[in-house]
Nucleic acid binder design. Structure first.
Lengths: 145, 145
DNA sequence: TAGCGGACGATAATAATTATCCTTTACAAT
DNA sequence: ATTGTAAAGGATAATTATTATCGTCCGCTA
């Protein structure tokens, strides 16, 4: 007997040309429930609850695999470590230069219009990653500045 | 006797409230001559030619000090290590997702229009940091893809 | 279901950065 | 100019994040 989740994950793996394993499935489903920009260590801690014997190396290897095969997106990092993007919508980031907190902002709320097509030097554009650097509301009220 | 450079660096230090040392002066003047986004190791290698006894730790400590006190700007990193921005003009970055090379692009060449003022959540905007993710010309011709 | 290549787990190794600790220097007050 | 003190430098140990290695085991195709 095979659950719906397992069946669809098996298909997802096939689409992306990777083998389906128990660890990968738990990893994938755990990550899907996480919000924000989890670090490998945070993912590891969560997955360990379901698969206690899992190795941190496996978490790293599969996060990379997911990113390379396009299952998840790696975000441009302002944290000190690799982070994965759990928000599937087109969006960008507001980075507080004081407390380093990173908040998502929807692309339409940003009101940015970029030139599509090609850029100087024959660079082929895949996507834009915009970081808005500034001061978040919390830090503004904290110091009054 | 004191050279003009030394005199002005002494002033710079005073303005930023930091002590003036020989190592700091050489570090500062060396970095000013470097282009692109040098890594601490690269800066270290260069400075070593002038001050062979300098320690890598000193380079790190002072790069941080320069960034914190506003002498130089830290760039959002897509390299694996901390980089300092040596281009004073308003510009953004094109990041090759294949070879990781980062090239500057002038703000006007990017042709983006941003909404100034405040964003959702009361976030006060200081500046935008745009990374254009894509494939550079070299990697395009290398694989033909 | 057999066989093989890839995946897993444990852990060593590496890279980047930071902390420690002792010596030396810069700077302000004398 | 002299000196006291806090900060800076140098050497290196420690830490953190990540990757490589390697023997064993499992998923997938024939």
């Amino acid at each position: 007997m095979q659950s719906d989740e397992t069946r669809s994950f098996r298909e997802l793996c096939r689409e992306h040309g990777i083998a389906m394993t128990h660890q990968r499935q738990v990893l994938y489903e755990t990550m899907k429930t996480m919000h924000g920009h989890p670090s490998p260590e945070e993912v590891y801690a969560r997955v360990k609850r379901k698969v206690p014997a899992i190795s941190l190396a496996t978490v790293y290897k599969n996060i990379h695999l997911f990113v390379e095969s396009g299952v998840f997106r790696k975000m441009s990092m302002h944290h000190g470590s690799v982070r994965v993007e759990m928000n599937g919508e087109a969006h960008h980031h507001m980075v507080c230069s004081r407390c380093r907190e990173i908040t998502d902002i929807a692309e339409e709320d940003l009101g940015l219009t970029g030139r599509r097509g090609s850029l100087p030097g024959g660079f082929r554009v895949e996507r834009y990653a915009v970081d808005v650097i500034g001061i978040c509301a919390k830090c503004q009220s904290a110091t009054g500045s």
